[in-house]
Amino acid sequence: MESGVVDPGFPDQQQPPPAITTTIYFDKSYLNIRNIPAVLKAAVMVVNLIGYLCSAFSQYNNKAHSEWFCFVSMSGFWFSGILLLLYVLHVIEKFQKVPWLKVELGYCALWALLYLIAASVNIYRGGADSAAGFFGYVAMCIYAADAFLKFKAWRSGELAQGQRQMQQAPELASPGAY
């Protein structure tokens, strides 16, 4: 073997995968009505806000069940809003190493469970608390649907946003090189 020839199959000598060149930019096409994840995020934000207002203006707004509902609804509102903003600005695509689908799956499943508890406690109080409970059940259904879609996407190996970067196959040395 010649001293100047490097074995192309040696791991340290392989070509690195192409660099991800995504930039952060505003993409209004993400907010398209046909984009189901964006519609679900926007819908759950509206339902969270309506449920919060119903609970905050109820006659029992200083009771523990109402405060719990307000916590669940406002936390869901802000977290969903931040996620929507991250998708619109393509920040999700920039940080592809983060398992975004798993993060969102866990978040949506947890919030569906929290809304089940909060809405169930609020629904029997009557008045504005019953309305808050109704919107809590609607939010629970939206979060559960989003969790189901995230689970299907994760199981099929999809990315949360963007394209998977393909690695170039290393070139094989010709048999006469040795």
Rank of each mutant, 00 (worst) to 15 (best):
C141N: 09
V138C: 10
K102Q: 13
V6T: 14
I117N: 10
M166P: 04
P11F: 09
L49V: 11
P18H: 05
K97C: 03
V72I: 12
W100Y: 02
C141F: 13
G127F: 07
P16V: 06
V121Y: 14
G4S: 14
E2Q: 05
K152D: 12
V6P: 13
F95P: 06
A132W: 00
A56N: 04
A119W: 05
D7N: 15
A139C: 08
G76R: 02
Q161I: 02
V6I: 15
W78I: 07
L83H: 08
A109W: 08
N122W: 03
G162T: 00
L86E: 01
G9I: 01
E93V: 01
A119L: 09
L159G: 06
V6A: 15
D129P: 00
Q96V: 00
A19W: 10
Y25H: 13
I142T: 03
R125S: 13
S80T: 10
K94G: 02
G4R: 10
N32C: 07
C141Q: 01
L31S: 01
A128K: 07
G162Q: 07
P170Q: 12
M1L: 05
Y115T: 02
S73Q: 12
L105R: 03
Q161Y: 05
Y25W: 15
I82T: 15
D129G: 07
D146F: 04
L149F: 00
L86T: 02
V44S: 13
F69D: 14
P16K: 10
T23I: 11
N122V: 07
L86R: 04
A153Y: 07
W154P: 06
I33Y: 08
G136K: 12
L83Q: 09
W78G: 11
E2P: 02
Q168N: 06
L83I: 09
G51T: 06
N32K: 04
P8F: 14
A109D: 02
Y107W: 08
V98D: 06
L114N: 08
A144I: 00
P170R: 08
A43D: 07
G4T: 12
D7F: 04
A131M: 12
E158P: 09
G157I: 03
M1W: 00
G162D: 05
E93D: 04
S29V: 03
